[in-house]
Design a protein around this nucleic acid. Structure first.
Lengths: 140, 140
DNA sequence: GTTGCATTTGCAAGTAGGTTGCAAATATAA
DNA sequence: TTATATTTGCAACCTACTTGCAAATGCAAC
């Protein structure tokens, strides 16, 4: 586990520090998208600013990608192995559960092709679906 | 024009006030989605807080709907006539131009049907496309 | 038109998310 | 082990947004 984490950091030309290791550990542990506030709760020993900078660094280097959400806070999820600072593979669907509020990536579903009105050029698309997740849907 | 604006307000059981009239006028004038900062610039006579409250009231009453954006600020656009506080008709595609940064609703395109993994229930979906708009696409 | 009352507004203050500058601490390469 | 470039913590700041309260205003009933 610690080996895996150190490898991720080195692979992206980053120094292996305590804060970075613990942030990655949280991402590996939880499987949903995570925002700054959740990290701050888990990682009480580190300064707010350090966590913000860690997230920005990871975003730049392609360790995490940003997940669209409609609350104020930015959310992030681990990228797949083949992402780096040059190319992201995050054109998949994101799902937010209205019951437990967890945001997850659904890698299985690609964003469908769309024909835009004349004159429009599409570069990128994000699709956020809201509803009930696996766990909460069964209960209802 | 002033008649039309007063009608919109009365139709939603709202008092006709100077601030509300001017906010609606801005929405009718610009055709893209608008955030608080743009309104504050146009409507220098009103307090920031009043503009925030006006936007929230309009959202509740179904005069505007929220448009997904990835910057910090919330953006809003006028609803179609048949929206009210009970039912919104905003399941259309939203487009953000990477050149001029304008956010617009593309009513012509509906969000395509998607099959979610087993156990997931879809209630609502928002699709944000980024690229070049009509005006900026031609130039490039 | 005047009055009465509920609604709306402006102001002051507060909260949350996020950034910047700088000096001290630390990871890594030599 | 040392030199240095990177990272961290702290203080301070910024923007987006909210809340409480008293003063102002819209509107309906007279």
């Amino acid at each position: 586990m610690q080996e895996q984490i150190a490898h991720i950091l080195k692979h992206h030309q980053l120094r292996v520090t305590a804060c970075r290791k613990q942030v990655i550990a949280v991402f590996l542990d939880k499987r949903h998208a995570i925002g700054h506030s959740e990290l701050e709760r888990q990682l009480a020993d580190f300064d707010r600013v350090t966590i913000y900078r860690t997230l920005n660094t990871f975003l730049e280097k392609g360790i995490v990608h940003q997940v669209p959400d409609d609350v104020g806070e930015a959310k992030y999820a681990l990228c797949s192995d083949d992402c780096d600072e040059h190319a992201h593979q995050d054109e998949h669907v994101h799902f937010k559960c209205l019951e437990c509020n967890k945001l997850t990536c659904i890698a299985e579903i690609a964003i469908p092709n769309l024909t835009l009105p004349k004159g429009y050029v599409m570069k990128h698309a994000t699709l956020l679906i809201k509803g009930l997740c696996e766990d909460c849907g069964i209960a209802n």
